[in-house]
Simulated scan of single mutants.
Amino acid sequence: MNTAPTTYAIRVDGHLNDHWSAWLGELDLTRDDDGTTTLTVSVADQAQLHGVLAGLRDIGAVLTELRTTGTPAPICPSVLERPLQTERLTLRPATAADADPTWAFRQLESINEWLTGCPANLEGYRELFSKPARLATTVIVTLGHDPEAPTIGDFMLRREDAWAQLDVADQARDTQAELGWVLDPAFTGHGYATEAVRELLRYCFEDLGVRRVTANCFLGNDTSWRLMERVGMRREVHAVRESLHRSGRWLDTVGYAILEQEWSPA
C-alpha cells in the first residue's frame, strides 16, 4: 500500500540562497520578513525527512521550527527559562503583549537604521513579533522590579549549535549563544544596556552552560560594538563592505565573541 506523503514546513535561521533549493532536492523556499527561511517538503517516510534535515545541517543551517503544514505552529519555549533581576533591571521572556511597547522605539529611524528591518505599521509588527520562534528568543528589559515597570528594551538571546564535523556534531549542539539588543533611546546613557548584557552573559555561561557567546553589528553602529568591548568581548571578524544597507551602501560588519574561560562576573 502506498502511503500518502506528508508535507512539512521547516524554518531555519537566516535567508538561504535559491541555489540551496536545488541542492536540497528542489524544495520550495520562502525568505521570511523576520530573517528566517521556510522550506516546504513533501516526504513519503521519515527517512526522506531525515535526509533533508541532514542536508540542512551539512550547510550549517540552524533549525528553529519543524511542523506538518495545516497544523498550528508549536509553542516554542523561551531560551530564557525564568525572569532575571539585576540591581536596576528585570529581564523576562517576551509575550505577544510586548509588541506595542517595543514598537514605540523600534519604529524610530535612529533605531531602525541598524536593524534588519521593521514592518511599516503596528499591525505588521505585531504579526512578526508574535511568531513563536521570535518570542522564544526575545528578552524584554524593564526598569526596576515592579511588574508594571516600563519596558526600556528588547534583547535577543539565541542558543545554537556550534559548527562541527559530522562525526562530532552531537558534541557541538547547544554549545554557543548569540546576543543582540535594542534599547529605547530615551533610556540611553545610564549603563542599562551594559548591565543587561552582563547579566545575559552570566546566564549563558552559568545557567545554560554554553562555551561561547557571539554578537555582531554594522561597523558604523559604534554604540553597539563599544558595548561588546565593554563587557569583555573581542573582535574576531571585520568584513569589509559585506552587507547591503537599505541606503544602497555596502557596509562593513564586525563580529565579536567571548569564551566561558574568558568571562568573569562583574
Results as ranks from 00 to 15, higher is better:
residue 152 I to R: 02
residue 224 S to P: 04
residue 244 L to W: 10
residue 11 R to G: 06
residue 206 E to L: 03
residue 41 V to T: 06
residue 147 P to W: 09
residue 154 D to G: 03
residue 178 E to W: 09
residue 158 R to I: 09
residue 135 L to V: 13
residue 38 T to H: 05
residue 2 N to Q: 08
residue 257 A to E: 03
residue 146 D to M: 11
residue 30 T to W: 10
residue 107 Q to L: 11
residue 92 R to S: 08
residue 238 H to P: 02
residue 173 R to V: 03
residue 89 L to S: 05
residue 181 W to A: 11
residue 156 M to F: 13
residue 63 L to W: 03
residue 37 T to I: 08
residue 12 V to H: 01
residue 115 L to F: 15
residue 87 E to N: 11
residue 4 A to V: 02
residue 16 L to K: 01
residue 251 L to M: 15
residue 259 L to V: 01
residue 117 G to H: 14
residue 107 Q to W: 10
residue 219 L to F: 12
residue 187 F to Q: 11
residue 100 D to M: 14
residue 110 S to L: 07
residue 105 F to Y: 14
residue 212 R to G: 04
residue 11 R to T: 12
residue 131 K to M: 10
residue 91 L to P: 03
residue 135 L to W: 10
residue 220 G to S: 00
residue 104 A to H: 15
residue 252 D to I: 05
residue 52 V to N: 07
residue 65 E to A: 14
residue 30 T to P: 00
residue 71 T to K: 13
residue 139 V to M: 06
residue 205 F to Q: 02
residue 108 L to Q: 13
residue 128 L to N: 12
residue 115 L to Q: 15
residue 96 A to T: 13
residue 44 A to F: 01
residue 42 S to N: 09
residue 135 L to A: 11
residue 45 D to A: 03
residue 81 E to G: 14
residue 127 E to L: 10
residue 218 F to R: 08
residue 175 T to N: 09
residue 84 L to S: 05
residue 56 L to C: 07
residue 47 A to M: 00
residue 195 E to R: 07
residue 123 E to W: 13
residue 207 D to W: 01
residue 41 V to P: 04
residue 49 L to C: 04
residue 58 D to P: 00
residue 264 S to G: 06
residue 38 T to F: 05
residue 36 T to V: 03
residue 195 E to T: 05
residue 179 L to K: 05
residue 10 I to T: 05
residue 175 T to Q: 15
residue 68 T to C: 13
residue 171 Q to M: 00
residue 254 V to Y: 05
residue 230 R to T: 09
residue 15 H to D: 07
residue 64 T to A: 13
residue 108 L to W: 08
residue 70 G to S: 07
residue 52 V to W: 08
residue 170 D to N: 00
residue 258 I to A: 06
residue 29 L to V: 08
residue 93 P to Q: 09
residue 88 R to C: 08
residue 49 L to A: 04
residue 106 R to K: 15
residue 209 G to M: 01
residue 236 E to M: 06
residue 19 H to S: 15
residue 231 V to Q: 02
residue 171 Q to E: 06
residue 244 L to Y: 12
residue 214 T to A: 13
residue 148 E to L: 13
residue 223 T to D: 06
residue 253 T to W: 03
residue 122 L to T: 10
residue 100 D to F: 13
residue 158 R to Y: 11
residue 90 T to A: 11
residue 174 D to I: 00
residue 185 P to C: 01
